[in-house]
Every structure is written in C-alpha cells, then in structure tokens.
C-alpha cells in the first residue's frame, strides 16, 4: 500500500526503483466492478441527500416566494442569530446534547460491560432485551412518558408522593421541563450502543486479559486499562452518532411540550420545522439548517480529534 503511494522506493538488493504514481481515476478503473455495485446507492445518495443539502445551502441565501426568488446574501443568517427564539433553541439543544450524550455513552458502556462476561445464551437474551425497545416509535415512547410526567395521574408524582413529597409539574415549569426531557432520554435503554459495544468487546484479544490476570490485575483495572482504551474507536463512533441524533431532537418536543413552557424546551430542529412549514420561510429555515450543519460538523471534528486512536 505504501509502495503505491510513493513514486520512489528501494528493493531487497538496495536498487532504487520507480513505481509510477496511480491517479485516483486509475485506481477507480481498477475497482470498477465494485463501483458499479455502489452506483445505485450513490445515485440515491446524490439525488435524495447531496443535492437537497447543497440546494438548502443555496436557498439559505434566497428569499423564496412560491413563484419568485430574490438573493438576499447573509440576511437569513443574521436574522437567525437576532431571533431570541433561535438563540434559546440553540442553548437548549446544546445543553440537551451535553447532558444526554455522555449519559448515553456511559450507560451503554457499563451495561455492555456487565453483559460481556456472561455466557452466549445470556448475552443474546440481554442484547435482545435492551435492543427491542429501540425499535419502538419515539411517538409511542413520548406518549407513555407524557403520562408518566402527568401532574395528577403520572407515575413519577405517584412515586414521590409515596415518600411524602409534593407533586411536581414536570413538563409545565420552565425549571423542570427540559431536565424532564433529558431524564427521559437518559433512562431510555441505549440499545444500539450496547449492541455495538458488545460487538467491539468480543473483538478484543482475550490474551490481553490473560496477561493482565498473570500480572495480578483485578476486574476493574482490566476494564480501565484494557477494555476502555481498546474501545476508543467504537466510543468515537457512538459519540459522533449520538451527538448528531441529540442535536436533531424533535419528536419528543413536538409530542410532549411543543417547545414550552415559554421557550424552555425549544430546540433547533423544532424551530427549523416551524420556520419552514408553519411560516413558509424556506430561506430562513435553510439558513438555520446550515447553521445546525456547521455546529454538528464542528462538534464532530472536535470529537474526532480528541478521541481518535493514534496508529
């Protein structure tokens, strides 16, 4: 592989040989069958993802009526940041992400670590048990949680009432509404994370643990010194994925609070949705989407740089 990238190298007898550089096109031609198989997916990706994303970027500089288009430069970007509602949504989304993503990762890692030492049958059982809830629609989950948070009939107020505490208006107070949504996100089992961590744990070479046993390491030391470092690429993948998902939080908001009370649970995607499909302001909605895109990209770059494994 390294020889393909260098034009000059040295053979076993010490003679300098020149290997012609292969262009991207030449390498693509070599793998044309593979590209042919990838073509349908690439076409769909281009038509339904890439072009709409680029189109949204273009629209963000336009005032679009139904029949006419005016170029307005960065007007929508300034307008987005001038709006107190957008700023509130940005802050709420950041807070939601900062709290829920680490919680998701830590919970998934701990649960997967408890499942990993079990036998195959037990592992399969717990994998299914934790993964099954993730196939449930978020709409259904949100409806159930809304009932659990109900002031008078909800499960949470019943439990705290049992211990003599006053009921809490969970979703009706600005001080508790966003934390309630965060608690919900944290308490939903991180099924996908557990599955991915378990798969990664099963790929760790057992001889590393055997060597640690010989050195007298206990279970916690092995977890800290071997498991967690070797899971770093998996953690990076999960952190990036869950950050993207967290920034795009929407269903819970529209089902449980509508962004209120006040704007205490307003989030970026909910604002984008309202701007586009309630106010018909597609230019502003696209600018808000582009801002969200760059925020997520910024987070992903920082996460990638801080968590990537050096070769």
């Amino acid at each position: 592989m390294a020889a393909q990238q260098n034009s000059n190298t040295v053979n076993n007898t010490g003679e300098k040989i020149i290997i012609p550089k292969k262009t991207v096109w030449m390498r693509m031609k070599e793998n044309k069958v593979a590209y042919l198989f990838l073509l349908p997916k690439l076409i769909f990706f281009t038509v339904f993802m890439l072009i709409p994303i680029l189109w949204a970027f273009v629209i963000s500089f336009q005032d679009r009526g139904v029949f006419d288009v005016d170029y307005v430069g960065f007007k929508h970007y300034f307008e987005a940041f001038q709006s107190p509602i957008f700023r509130a949504a940005l802050w709420n989304t950041l807070l939601y992400t900062i709290v829920t993503v680490p919680a998701f990762i830590i919970t998934a890692l701990i649960i997967a670590s408890f499942i990993y030492p079990l036998g195959q049958v037990s592992q399969a059982f717990f994998r299914s048990a934790f993964y099954l809830p993730t196939v449930t629609s978020m709409v259904i989950i949100a409806m159930v949680w809304r009932w659990m948070y109900n002031y008078r009939f909800g499960l949470f107020n019943y439990i705290i009432g049992f211990f003599g505490f006053e009921p809490v208006n969970w979703l009706g107070q600005t001080s508790t509404a966003l934390p309630s949504l965060m608690i919900m996100a944290i308490l939903i089992p991180p099924g996908a994370g557990i599955i991915i961590y378990l798969a990664a744990m099963n790929n760790i070479n057992p001889s590393l643990y055997e060597a640690a046993d010989i050195d007298g390491a206990n279970a916690f030391q092995k977890w800290i010194r071997i498991t967690i470092p070797l899971l770093k690429p998996t953690t990076l993948y999960l952190v990036i994925l869950s950050t993207i998902g967290s920034f795009q939080v929407f269903t819970q908001i529209i089902m449980m609070t509508g962004g209120g009370p006040g704007y205490s649970t307003e989030t970026l995607v909910h604002v984008i949705y309202k701007t586009a499909f309630r106010d018909f302001n597609f230019g502003l909605a696209s600018a808000q989407s582009v801002i969200l895109f760059f925020i997520i990209m910024g987070f992903a770059i920082v996460q990638f740089k801080s968590l990537r494994t050096e070769k």
Binding site: R146, N150, L171, G258, P261
Partner: peptide
Amino acid sequence: APMEMGGADVGGTFQAFAALDQRT
C-alpha cells in the same frame, strides 16, 4: 383550577374532563 392548567397537554386536559375513569 388544577396545577396543570395552562400546560400544553390537549389530550390530557380533555380526558381529565371527559374520560369515564377521570371526570375530575
């Protein structure tokens, strides 16, 4: 009026009034 008056739960508000097992 109950503490939850003024919340955004349309369905819950109606059920508290209309559902046979609530009517509070």
